[in-house]
Write a protein that binds this DNA or RNA. Structure first.
Lengths: 170, 170
DNA sequence: CTTGGAATGTCAACAAGACTGACATAAACT
DNA sequence: AGTTTATGTCAGTCTTGTTGACATTCCAAG
């Protein structure tokens, strides 16, 4: 389990970056950074009785307009009942529109209204501002490494979802 | 707000990595990766009627044995009522010990019991295993960039807490 | 064509864990 | 002596996750 706990072995390159100490630093960095990552949108959402779940739904509906509830479900990784509650309030508040599918009437296709898009922009502007500052601070090479490690950390199914969003479905 | 949305300006180096598209990828990467990051401990915790909140408390008590409630509070960023509920169950279950301070008797110093340490090891072994795989996959330079960006993403107060844990309080 | 199962989505009820507010106690500081 | 600090507790609310039950629609096997 903890082969890296003992003295690291030197081969072609140093394995010092795999020590438990280095791993623990990464774990704590993820914890603290995620707090910062969500802080700005959270502040905006709190003013309007919404939560992080609403933000996530809005984000991914904006990314893939017309997506179905089921599709969104697999991306967000929550139960359909949980998502449904969030969607219900967003629809009631006129931020999201739900259209019955034309080919399969069981499906609902989701779209942001103008108001929904406005909120999305407000939230993602705040989140991007922090991200941009962090990117700028760290530089392009660090950013490349950042994404590489994050991608390696994902579950396989999530990595697929991530790449689909990134490159578009093949 | 979105100066990077228009065509990037080339100076000494490319600013392509600051486009909104690149930022959005980073945002989504954080989202999906954090899910993976917590997935393994979450599975273990679910078996024993504990949650992520218990994990966080156990982690930081292990990192800084003898820490006070107030100290833990500022690291975790939750209210004392919320933390107290978690600590109460951990103490009742014999995973955490709370000792009245010797110099300042108002303070409670928190320690893991043997059972607490055992659970901590189990949880962090699971989390480290995934982290190690990701590190190995991405390589040492990517890991350096990963940490750099995460650190830049933190709130100032959290960055201080993170560095204190990393290097020890100066 | 009908019927039964699968897929999709909705409603209701409950639990965890966050929050605020109010209050109690003990110890330390001024 | 009076104020501040550290901690704990009770009560109530909110978000967001869960499971269970159910309605609608589609599709395919009989």
């Amino acid at each position: 389990m903890s082969e890296a706990r003992s003295a690291p072995v030197y081969g072609g390159e140093s394995l010092l970056f795999l020590t438990d100490e280095q791993l623990r630093q990464g774990i704590e960095a993820m914890f603290f950074a995620y707090r910062g990552f969500t802080a700005d949108p959270d502040r905006i959402l709190a003013e309007m009785a919404y939560g992080r779940a609403h933000h996530r739904a809005i984000h991914f509906i904006n990314r893939a307009p017309g997506t179905t509830v089921n599709n969104l479900l697999s991306i967000l990784g929550v139960t359909k009942q949980s998502l449904n509650r969030v969607l219900r309030t967003l629809i009631a508040d006129g931020l999201v529109e739900s259209r019955v599918g034309t080919v399969d009437k069981r499906e609902r296709h989701l779209f942001l209204t103008d108001a929904g898009r406005a909120l999305e922009t407000k939230l993602s502007d705040a989140q991007r501002a922090r991200m941009r500052a962090a990117y700028k601070d760290a530089g392009p090479e660090a950013v490349a490494g950042f994404k590489q490690v994050l991608e390696a950390m994902m579950d396989t199914s999530m990595r697929r979802a991530y790449r689909n969003l990134k490159d578009g479905p093949t």
